[in-house]
Structure formats: structure tokens, C-alpha cells
């Protein structure tokens, strides 16, 4: 159900601009993944997002959803199949929460009963109590709650793809981190392919399965957070990602990224390959000499302080 999104040589030029807003962007957002587009302001990341629902038309190149160029479908129909969450949340102030969530289902002509059922379901999905919030207006909710409603609205009609443009920009810093973690879980539960635009590198590293780094309208690098931190494409990417900071690496890298082959069979405490390095460090600090790394039920090697140091410090 979730779509694969592919950019193939996407080039955008604004009328009267001296250079292209986007230049030959090519990469793939795998089905069901959350990919973050990161870069300094003016790098073209929002423009890239808006080519996907044809709010901006590309000059050259193609955007493909499940290998079908999006230009083959009518923009209005295309947009109804793509969830959209924007920076200022963009909830309609004259509608109740339920009416906001129902916008796309209504546009699609769903039956009344099905819409009512889906409103409650999707509000629960974003961890809001439908009975409490359904009939309220957005202004009566907190910023974090409004953000959840925004996500609920985007997910209401089972979109093939979710676009998020700086979705946490309007949320204050105190709730942002916990909301980000929750949104990651919600989007993963929904299984919807997600393209998220942010200027916040921490946010991207925290949320994304894959990151596309943009600068001056060009794609600098695309890969997993670990790939970007361990092998930044250039000094600019290294600086933007703060890739050499050991604490950042500790938070982002997985045990798998530090594992070393071990040919002995000594008995050791175990740790999952997908665990964060931070968890590994905590266990080592608690006195284990080394940890056996387990992936898919088999022991693939070990980690110790030396192995951690090797990936944390360049």
C-alpha cells in the first residue's frame, strides 16, 4: 500500500531566478521508510517536497510514485492520495478537530459512517482521546495536540505517501523531543512512506531511516544516518552533521556499526545489533569486559571499549 518514491534528475527553476532551485536530484525513498531531507535554509528542500504533490512543477526530470511518473495523474487526485503536514500545522480554525480530520475523506466521497469511524480511529492512532478533542476547535488545543491532529488529518485517508514540511517547527522545545519520538512510532505503525523536510540535523538523525543532504539545490549525499556520520561526502557535510562529535555518534550509531569479529566462544553478556551504542556503553560501564552482539539469533561478533572508541573518535 505504501509507495516507493523516486526522484530522477529533478530540476526546478523559478522564473527570473539566476540559478536552478534544484539541480539534477536523484534518489529513492524506499516504501515504508522515513526519509529526511536536510540542509541549510534556501537549499531547496521545501521545493523538493512540493514537487511530489505537484505544488511545484519540475522543469526537467521525473518524480515517480511506484515507478509511475506523477505527471500521469491529475494533480487534485494525486494530492488526495498524499498526506501533507506543514510547518504552521495549517489546521482550519473554523472547523472542529473532527471536521479537519475528515477533509480528505469527504473530498474522496466516503460514506458518513465510515468517516465518523475513521476520525476516532486515526485520533487514537496519534494518541488523542476522540471523545475529548473531536468537537473542539484547533485553538482550544495545545501546540503539541494540534500537531497530532495535523498528523491525524494527513493519515486519515490512508495516503500512499506522507509529506512533512518542518512539522515540529511550531512546537516548543520542551515537548518537541518526546513528540518526535512518538511521531516516529506513529508513522512506523502506519507504515506510510514518509518524506520529511527539516533544517534541524538532530531531528533528522533522530527520526529518519535515511537522510538526503541538500546544499544549493544539489544533493550532497544520501544514506542512512550511520553512513552519513561515518563517511560524510565532504567537509561541508561533515560540519553540517557535526559528524565527528563522539556524543552525536554515540546517539546515532548502532552496535552493528562497531561490531568486531570474534573467533572465541567465551561466555559474554549479549546485546542486540540494533541497539544503540549508548546502550552498549552503559553495559560496558557497568562492568562487562565485552558484549556478544546478536543479530537474527546468531552471534556476529563482539564489542568492547576499544571497538567503541574506534567508531566514536575519528
Amino acid at each position: 500500500m505504501s509507495a516507493t518514491l523516486r526522484f530522477d534528475g529533478v530540476t526546478v527553476r523559478y522564473p527570473g531566478a539566476s540559478r536552478n532551485a534544484l539541480e539534477e536530484i536523484s534518489f529513492t525513498v524506499p516504501a515504508g521508510s522515513l526519509t529526511a531531507v536536510v540542509g541549510p535554509s534556501g537549499c531547496g528542500k521545501s521545493t523538493l517536497l512540493r514537487t511530489v504533490n505537484r505544488m511545484i512543477e519540475v522543469e526537467r526530470g521525473t518524480v515517480l510514485l511506484d515507478d509511475r511518473p506523477i505527471t500521469e495523474s491529475d494533480p487534485v487526485a494525486l494530492r488526495r492520495g498524499i498526506g501533507y503536514v506543514i510547518q504552521a500545522i495549517g489546521l482550519f480554525p473554523h472547523m472542529t478537530v473532527a471536521e479537519n480530520v475528515a477533509v480528505v475523506p469527504r473530498l474522496l466521497g466516503w460514506e458518513h459512517a465510515r468517516i465518523a469511524e475513521r476520525i476516532d480511529e486515526v485520533l487514537q492512532l496519534v494518541r488523542l482521546d476522540p471523545r475529548r478533542v473531536r468537537d473542539r476547535r484547533p485553538a482550544q488545543l495545545s501546540g503539541g495536540e494540534q500537531q497530532r491532529v495535523g498528523v491525524a488529518r494527513a493519515l486519515a485517508a490512508y495516503p500512499r505517501l506522507l509529506l512533512m514540511d518542518e512539522p515540529f517547527g511550531a512546537v516548543d522545545a520542551v515537548v518537541r523531543a518526546s513528540l518526535q519520538d512518538e511521531m516516529r512510532a506513529i508513522v512506523h505503525d502506519a507504515g506510510t512512506t514518509t518524506l520529511l523536510v527539516t533544517h534541524d540535523v538532530d531531528e533528522a538523525l533522530r527520526l529518519a531511516d535515511r537522510i538526503a543532504l541538500l546544499r544549493d539545490g544539489r544533493l550532497v549525499q544520501e544514506g542512512t544516518p550511520a553512513e552519513l556520520l561515518l563517511h560524510p561526502a565532504d567537509d561541508g557535510a561533515r560540519a553540517l552533521l557535526n559528524a565527528d562529535d563522539p556524543v552525536r555518534r554515540l546517539q546515532v550509531l548502532r552496535v552493528r556499526d562497531a561490531v568486531r569479529p570474534d573467533h572465541t566462544t567465551r561466555t559474554l553478556p549479549t546485546i542486540a545489533a540494533t541497539a544503540s551504542l549508548r546502550e552498549g556503553l552503559v553495559q560496558l560501564l557497568n562492568g562487562a569486559p565485552a558484549l556478544a552482539v546478536i543479530e537474527n539469533g546468531t552471534r556476529i561478533g563482539t564489542i568492547d571499549f576499544e571497538a567503541l572508541r574506534a567508531v566514536l573518535v575519528r
Binding site: 487526485a77 501533507y84 506543514i86 482550519f92 477533509v103 480528505v104
Partner: peptide, 9 residues
């Protein structure tokens, strides 16, 4: 903008 992006004519 949101209205258009959600697929309103």
C-alpha cells in the same frame, strides 16, 4: 496552501 495540497479544487 494546505487546502490545495490536500486535493481541494
Amino acid at each position: 496552501d494546505a487546502a490545495t495540497a490536500m486535493g481541494m479544487t
